[in-house]
Amino acid sequence: MSEFLPPILARYGDDLLDGFWITLQLVGLSIGFGIVLASLSTRARLSKRWWLRWLSAIYINLFRGTPLIAQLFLIYYGLGQFSGLWRTLNLWWFLRDPFNCAVLAFTLNTAAYQAEIFRGAVEAVPRGQWEGASALGLPRHIGFLKVIVPQAAIYALRPFGNEIILMVKGSAVASVVTVYDLLGETRLAFSDTFRFDVYFYAAALYLVLVETLRRVWNLLEARLTRHLDPASKQRMRRRKESVLEPVAS
């Protein structure tokens, strides 16, 4: 088999695939943990307590308004500075590992974006739905779970798919803190051989991943919205994502 491959792939193909697997893990874990954190901060954002709303707004805007790579450096090198403290707290085993640091940074980052998506989706559900739920005598939190969330989920679907794709692309920065993801393995192969074509093979893998995600997501969306009429589907697509809002909002 390997004699049919370009020489660089024969030598580094397995490494690139290992890196690809690390990239998938980085993205999967961060998106998964991100959903949990984003749900919590959306809850805080819609809370009646002003300080919870503020805290959540500051977190969301801070992480959406600054570069992911700077956040990663803050967590990797910044938290690493206090390794003595983490050892006492028995947390160093976690922060010591570059992969964990990357997952932590990516989770905090994607959760902020996801929270904004969730909030927008909840607010897009017409007021009448809240009123209808309470007219049926449903308690507020049941009405929220059974009436609002299912409708909001459909509004959130498209921007959420975009966020996964953004995370795939963003995950490449993990390679700058010695995580051997797809780009990390690629850089290693390049520095060993100065063979530039290795970047093209890595680029092709990223493109395949992103395009696959995009197509799968389109199918998913078509399936979940098949009960909607074309006009409301159009409306959903047109909804622009909100620009970064000042903290005070």
Binding site: Y77, G80, Q81, S83, R87, W92, R96, P98, V176, T178, L188
Partner: peptide
């Protein structure tokens, strides 16, 4: 083996015990 772009980076990580 972890490979760093510059000596500065491994110095930071050796100092922190990473």
């Amino acid at each position: 083996l972890r490979r760093y772009g510059t000596p500065e980076e491994y110095k930071l990580d050796l100092a922190s015990g990473r």
